[in-house]
Design a binder for these strands. Sequence first.
DNA 1: TTAAAACATGTAATTAATTACATGTTTGCA
DNA 2: TGCAAACATGTAATTAATTACATGTTTTAA
Lengths: 183, 183
Amino acid sequence: MATIGQRNRLQFIILGLLNQQPQTGYDLAKAFENEIGEFWQAQHSQIYPMLKRLEAAGEITHEDTVTGEKLAKKQYTLTPTGREKLVAWVSQPSPELTPNKDEFILKLYFIKDVDDPRIQPMLREQYRLHQAQLAHLQQRQATVFPDTSTIDQAYGHYLILDHAIAREAHYVSWLTQYLTPED
Amino acid sequence: MATIGQRNRLQFIILGLLNQQPQTGYDLAKAFENEIGEFWQAQHSQIYPMLKRLEAAGEITHEDTVTGEKLAKKQYTLTPTGREKLVAWVSQPSPELTPNKDEFILKLYFIKDVDDPRIQPMLREQYRLHQAQLAHLQQRQATVFPDTSTIDQAYGHYLILDHAIAREAHYVSWLTQYLTPED
DNA sequence: TTAAAACATGTAATTAATTACATGTTTGCA
DNA sequence: TGCAAACATGTAATTAATTACATGTTTTAA
């Protein structure tokens, strides 16, 4: 009865991010707001304690630095142990479909009636949201990958953006199918 | 500083399910394994306590019934208060995009290298998973909605299945784009 | 020059969610 | 008839995640 129910993906994601480059807890928190945020989320209140746990386990180490006069930063780096653990996680199959949640779809589900007057406004609201998100992601892609030659330098980043864009575009097109022209 | 941070969508989903028809905690748990499960998940250990909370709040009531000799069941029903609360939730905008998590995409992200030999097997595994899920959902759709005339009777159910199918089909097609023929 | 935004790091309290523990009944099928 | 699967309901323990509390520095732009 040990070592079985290993969830806790956050630790691996942090290892993965630190493998790209040494960085601070603050930097990690920002990463969860940007690209990574499309596929995983974590607040700084979850990140800082996890960094301590990982360091205690010998998977990362930190170096104290100071910006300006006295602003203290902790730059975290992967140890060989940490890198091993990361590689093991990445290489191991992901046989479960990560559960998806979508409050909006559930609301539609509960309304049931095709002609309920609430449906169209709700669809339009979602349309706006996802459309905006799509535009934002496309903007990002255009900035980060101005031409195809830049893709290989950050292929993982490209993949994640590509997937997020595809997902949003598809969501928008699904919504469109049920939208009636607004007059 | 009260009544603000109202998350806890589970309660509303339970109200929504009970609004469709009175049912037991066990029935609700099953609902989270089927269609609803594509967009929200909850175990019975979360459901039973929530039912007590909702009943204490006067939003649902239950009736004890017995199956066979002595198998006790609790059939839960919405009260007018509960129905009001449900309607308020459904009618209110859902202005946040429910966060999505996807362990697989993150693994791809961390691999980075286009030519890493692990990528293709991982893509194929995900392909298998999502393809299987897609087939399962399509099977379900064919069973539940044998012809278009049956759609209106359970439009919410239809929507949820349609969205889940579209999502899986799209995921599969995204994967295909990166798959190279296996020899 | 000063105020706001961003940088930077933590802990505490609460809530949500999962996993494990715990028990018993009924149905279906071999 | 006997056994497994499905039905049925709970609690306890643990872990994950969010929200709130708490504090201080540096940069940027008005």
